[in-house]
Simulated scan of single mutants.
Amino acid sequence: MTFRMPAEWAPHDWTWIGFPTNADEWPGAFDAARTQIAAFANALHADGRGEEVRLVVANEGDADAARALVAPGVSIVVQPLGDVWLRDTAPITVLNGKARALVDFGFNGWGGKYQMAGDEDIGARLAATTGLPTSTQQWVFEGGAVDTDGTGLFVTTEQCLLHPNRNPDLDRGKIETLLAGSLGLSDMLWLGDGLLNDHTDGHVDNLARFVGEGLLALPIATTEDDPNAAIYADARARAIAHGVEVIDIPSPGLVLVDGEAVPASYMNFYVGNAAVIVPIYGQPNDQAALDTLAPFFPGRDIVGLRSDAILSGGGSFHCCSQQMPSV
């Protein structure tokens, strides 16, 4: 056997969630983003029926603000960090039978675009709090760039993993070899571009997510003005050609902020022990997306929560969280 990253629906011991600390990153939406992330933490914890939630805050002042918003059972962890996107900066857990280890990757602020103090080593510091053996990878990689069904099948986008602002000396083959050694990759489905105006250069967790072994959920455009219609169609064709079964999820469609299309997506859901938390945006397809996901997660509540304020900072629920799978 080999160490391998499990599927997100495997049981968790806890989940880390980042809490906003820099108001400049959330212009006009800082307080609302804090409120929405706290609502995510509360829904995941579910008064103890869900899982342990460790809300990571940058300082004691932010800890006080967080405690005023979250349920009593949500833990507060003070660790300096710049941005909330722990999917990309926290360590990733791999399992091998009853053995568990962490993998901490290099991080360069999403290709040098958003470099904030604390983000460069938050992964190492969180890993140190667990006492688990940790492998340190020197190449740049973000957790939101891949998704897996737990069998060794992974999905990613060429736009992100092959972008020269991350690892210009690594080609497709070298990246697959590195992921095989670090996360247990055995089969990579390469999609093309991610969503329009995605600050991460097309992270796959905003485009395509596994909902079962060999089952890949993908958005489908339902309106003529959907800015990502061609991206969805290309991803669907690639997935089918790879032999993956595609589950069509209606897209939120065109969502504008200050006249610009933003990468709103139902795919940035998070699969917790007791609930699947899905970002919604007050769009006509919100309920349809929840209803389509429900059959794939029996026994879990499908919870739609507003995420528009979080999105103004560049991501949503999946982006700001990182799970600790159970052994």
Rank of each mutant, 00 (worst) to 15 (best):
Q287A: 15
V94W: 00
D31Y: 06
H203F: 06
S182K: 04
V244D: 02
A101S: 15
R54I: 10
D286F: 02
W14G: 06
D234S: 13
V78N: 06
R100M: 03
P250Q: 08
K174A: 15
P252F: 01
P91K: 03
T136D: 11
T21I: 11
D64G: 10
I122F: 09
T177W: 11
D169P: 07
P6E: 03
G152M: 06
R166F: 10
I302M: 09
D291E: 15
E51W: 04
V77A: 08
D83M: 12
I17A: 13
M267N: 04
G144F: 04
I37H: 03
R67K: 12
W85Y: 15
V262K: 00
T148P: 00
G61D: 14
L256D: 08
T136G: 04
N42A: 11
I37R: 01
M188S: 08
L126N: 01
D291P: 04
T89A: 12
C160H: 10
F141G: 00
E213N: 10
S135I: 11
L195V: 11
N22W: 09
I277V: 15
M267K: 03
R125L: 10
P20S: 09
F141P: 00
A33L: 07
G282F: 12
P295M: 07
D225M: 10
T200N: 05
F3G: 01
E245N: 13
I249L: 13
Q138K: 13
G243V: 10
A294Q: 12
I277Q: 03
G118K: 05
G61R: 11
N22V: 14
F269V: 05
P298N: 09
P11G: 06
D286C: 08
N273C: 08
T35N: 13
I247H: 01
W16I: 06
D119I: 04
L102W: 01
R34D: 07
L196F: 10
G304R: 02
A124P: 05
G143Y: 02
G272L: 06
G194D: 04
G109C: 08
F141Y: 09
E51A: 10
V103G: 00
E224C: 08
A23N: 07
I302C: 07
P250T: 11
V57P: 00
G106K: 03
R87P: 02
G144C: 09
T136P: 04
P72S: 10
I17E: 03
V103W: 00
V146P: 01
W139Q: 07
T130I: 09
I122R: 02
T156K: 02
A241Q: 14
L185Y: 02
Y114N: 11
A233I: 08
P279S: 05
R54K: 14
S186C: 12
G184W: 00
C319H: 03
D225A: 12
I240R: 14
H163R: 14
T15A: 15
Y266F: 15
I280Y: 00
F296M: 07
S307C: 15
L290N: 03
L293I: 09
A7P: 03
G61H: 12
A127Q: 01
A58G: 08
D169N: 14
T151K: 05
D31Q: 13
D121N: 13
H45T: 06
L161F: 09
V56Y: 06
V246R: 05
N165H: 12
S312E: 06
A43T: 09
I231D: 01
V53Y: 05
V276P: 00
G143A: 09
T35Q: 15
F296G: 06
D147L: 05
V77M: 12
V78I: 15
E245P: 01
R238I: 08
E260C: 11
